[in-house]
Design a protein around this nucleic acid. Structure first.
Length: 498
RNA sequence: GGCGCUAUGGUGCAACGGUUAGCACGCGGCCCUUUCAAGGCCGAAAUACGGGUUCGAUUCCCGUUAGCGCUACCA
């Protein structure tokens, strides 16, 4: 390597035709991991040359998606719509050099798939080749002048060599080569003056000095065209790395009908960005061993293009949820707290003191609850009884644990006993409860389960006595007393039925 | 249709000529237990098919099949 070693530069280049979907997110992540690992630069480029489909208002959503994902770019965003002169200039240069020619065919006409099909098959290759070669490529200067006079606005097509092969290196798929005879004379500049993807992507990747192009494998087949453009422009192509696609459970390309496909929807659902990154990283990549739970820093340490697979992967939602629970359960509590805080804020349950004077209490509560959460929303969902007194009694929980008619008097005694406790801690709550149960001659479980429903309204909750400590004496006693009438009704209804 | 890519349990990945084919998710069972989780243990489950090459193929080659991609004046 020379002193002036070529700097590693990668890019993520979405087009604003939709939100940031999981496939794009994975591509962005791989670029980011690679840049971080190798000490390179990542830039963001918005490919908005298709004025028809381009929705400028979607750009913000894509940026938000990337920010949530934690993929931060070092340069950009650049917008191709603001760089049109460069593409035109490049096309003119290729025209002047003979690598391209003006085409006067009406839009989308000379080699449509339909036309080829109608010709039938079994014919000699020459026929097909004729389809791939645009008739305009052989027009004389005079003929072109005549067309110009007619006022037909010309497109500019690349003059693809009719023989030979085009080769390139792919870090994932290896050495590739295709017969030039199989490549059509593709359009560089539309008759409207707008560049096509093939042109703008190459011009920008050259201008932005991209060293590695990491993108979806759907671009693999078009890469030879781009290599042709690089050559025509007198530039060596960069290293390509095509990553396999992400498919839906039915093995077709992930799309809206597979449900949630935007990263935004996963953010809203309560996934942690780091869990999402971990999951995404393992779709089409592995560190070469059985390691799965990897913090982002470990991902960066281990990432390499050599570990990228060539097989399409199916997006497996249950596994994503598993990763999320792993992070929810195992993250150092201090790292998790900010996420819970914003979750509670958006649910309108947040109390400022939990961030200051009662921070230790808040951390304790979260730590108690988290072993049985899967999504951030669980903290403002079923666990809301820990953060607010406003919760409902679940009918199923009542039906299951408020069956015994001795319960109302037993619970009243328990409330009194708890109220009289001088010390409020786990063991005191434990022995008090067990003593009441013993005095009544019932199994402790009966009372414990019923009490849980009284103070949290549900059957699913952390261990009772720990919960009591977190919720606090006044609230616990209050909640038990408040539940008494409801229990009476429940047991009475039961007696009626029998 | 043409061209190309891919092919390990249901899913995601390991094994890059020699393993009883490994791990994880999911699934089933057991244990633990104060509900529900978590956790621990056990289990069912795969090299698409057919030919080669080789002492030996999941691994290398060919064919078949299947899936996917490209085949736009979309990106």
């Amino acid at each position: 390597m020379s002193a002036e070693q070529k700097k590693l530069r990668v890019r993520f280049a979405p087009s604003p035709t939709g939100y940031l979907h999981v496939g794009g997110a994975r591509t962005a992540l791989f670029n980011w991991l690679f840049a971080r690992r190798e000490g390179g630069t990542m830039l963001l480029r918005i490919e908005d040359t298709d004025i028809e489909r381009n929705r400028p208002e979607l750009v913000e959503g894509i940026l938000d998606g990337l920010k949530w994902l934690g993929v931060q770019w070092d340069e950009g965003p650049y917008f191709q719509s603001q760089r049109l002169e460069m593409y035109t200039a490049a096309a003119k240069r290729m025209l002047a050099g003979g690598a391209a020619f003006t085409c006067y065919c009406k839009a989308a006409s000379y080699a449509g798939a339909d036309a080829v099909e109608q010709e039938g098959e079994g014919d000699d290759e020459g026929k097909v080749q004729k389809k791939l070669a645009c008739p305009c490529r052989d027009l004389s200067a005079g003929e072109r002048a005549a067309k110009e006079k007619e006022g037909t606005p010309p497109a500019i097509r690349f003059r693809v060599p009719r023989e030979g092969v085009t080769k390139f290196e792919d870090a994932v798929f290896g050495s590739r080569e295709v017969q030039n005879a199989e490549i059509e004379d593709f359009v560089l500049l539309r008759s409207t003056g707008q560049p096509t993807y093939q042109l703008s992507v190459v011009v920008d990747d050259i201008d932005m000095r991209i060293s590695h192009i990491i993108r979806g494998a759907d671009h693999l087949s078009n890469t030879p065209k781009q290599v042709l453009i690089y050559r025509a422009l007198g530039v060596d192509p960069p290293i390509f790395a095509h990553v396999p696609l992400i498919l839906g459970p039915d093995r077709t390309r992930l799309s809206k009908r597979h449900g949630a496909t935007s990263v935004g929807s996963y953010a809203e659902e309560g996934f942690l960005p780091e869990a999402f990154r971990n999951f995404l990283a393992l779709l089409g990549w592995s560190p070469g061993n059985d390691m799965e739970y990897m913090r982002t820093s470990e991902l960066v340490e281990r990432f390499s293009l050599a570990g990228v697979s060539r097989t399409n992967a199916i997006f497996d939602r249950p596994k994503l949820e598993w990763f999320n629970t792993e992070y929810l359960h195992n993250l150092p509590i201090e790292e998790l707290l900010p996420y819970i805080e914003s979750q509670l804020k958006s649910a309108g349950l947040w109390q400022e003191r939990w961030g200051s004077t009662d921070r230790a209490w808040f951390a304790h509560a979260v730590d108690l609850i988290r072993p049985r959460t899967r999504l951030l929303g669980d903290f403002s969902g079923w666990a809301r009884g820990f953060f607010t007194d406003d919760f409902e009694y679940e009918p199923e929980a009542c039906a299951k644990f408020w069956k015994d008619e001795r319960l109302p008097s037993m619970l009243a005694k328990l409330a009194d006993a708890l109220d009289a406790l001088p010390e409020w801690n786990h063991d005191a709550c434990d022995s008090t409860s067990r003593n009441v149960a013993a005095a009544e001659g019932v199994k402790a479980g009966l009372l414990i389960n019923a009490t849980r429903v009284c103070i949290l309204g549900r059957a699913v909750a952390p261990p009772l006595f720990e919960s009591m400590v977190v919720i606090g004496k006044d609230r616990v006693v209050g909640r038990i007393r408040r539940a008494l009438p409801a229990i009476g009704k429940q047991t009475a209804a039961r007696v009626d039925r029998s």
